[in-house]
Design a protein around this nucleic acid. Structure first.
Lengths: 174, 174
DNA sequence: TATTGTTATACTCTATAACTATA
DNA sequence: TATAGTTATAGAGTATAACAATA
């Protein structure tokens, strides 16, 4: 019994004892998980569709890269460092929209796996110059193969043309 | 100083004392937050663009509905209950992809604000039939006006046609 | 036995603030 | 004074598991 509905009145309504397994089809139905549930205005909000799509796409990415234990965020950090060796932590954080405090923990994990190294900057002793290690570069090449496989899943799901349209429409947000 | 780089060697490199405010333009630069930082393969991943777009859109929604203190998730719950009165918690959770354990807390908050009420189901005494209160319906009408304003922000940002294309492409995920 | 709502725990992520060593 | 990296804390959100009432 729902604990918070403790004061719910105990009315008598032992009606039709027979029923066809699910959806007794008598009268006072409530709308359960097996019913068609309308979205109303929600269907006209881009944000709702985008959220659902993003959940699907991240789940597929995580599943596809599960063997190498790399999340979308970790992948983005490794890719950006590899493409821009010597990047500072602030630059990575700003570019990817990650809090600098959060990036510290992300880099700690990646450094422990010897994928990334923090080197002393030659121009500003407050900051670190980030590089992938040799094994980090090798690993990233493997991650990219798996990420490409994930991207093929996206094509299977929404179609090649729609994927390209999405990339165009959302380009300003990268 | 970065605490973890404590063993960084203290080399001498007090070279050009003069510099033009930022980017001393001497030699061994690292790539700071003011530089152009390439995304490499990341730019070809739909998931990355979608994540950035979703962050923007949720931030705008929250900002636009800040005066009524309603989040995108709360809005989706209210909308679905209003469009399907008598919905059970399981049905809402499944339809919106929310964990049923999380929905309990969401509904507690909405019930405390007297926007939603949990009624005793007439057909299954384990479950609740969810309804908006009268003031909940009135409030939702106001929230919808603000949500429409948010949607206009989306149009301003990506254009009317692109928004419609997005809704079409992402329709299967709703 | 299975399901609904609930509670609790752990883990991730976000948002802040404060501290240090530098600039 | 301001900034880069770090640490710590609090609040969402997610993922689980377990429990009571009910089916």
């Amino acid at each position: 019994m729902p604990a918070r509905a403790a004061k719910a009145e105990a009315k008598s309504e032992a009606k039709s004892a027979v029923s066809g397994k699910r959806k007794p089809k008598t009268e006072a139905q409530d709308i359960d998980a097996s019913a068609h549930v309308g979205l109303d205005g929600l269907a006209l909000h881009v944000g709702y569709a985008v959220r659902r799509f993003q959940l699907w796409i991240f789940q597929d990415f995580i599943k596809t890269l599960a063997t190498v234990d790399i999340t979308p965020t970790q992948y983005s950090v490794l890719t950006v460092i590899s493409a821009n060796p010597g990047l500072t932590q602030m630059a990575v954080a700003k570019r990817l929209g990650i809090e600098r405090a959060r990036l510290v923990h992300l880099l700690n994990a990646l450094e422990q796996r010897t994928l990334v190294k923090r080197a002393a900057s030659k121009v500003d002793r407050r900051s670190h110059a980030l590089h992938l290690t040799a094994s980090g570069e090798a690993s990233l090449r493997q991650f990219k193969l798996l990420a490409a496989e994930h991207e093929r899943h996206v094509i299977e799901k929404i179609g090649k043309d729609n994927r390209e349209r999405l990339l165009e429409i959302l380009a300003p947000f990268r």
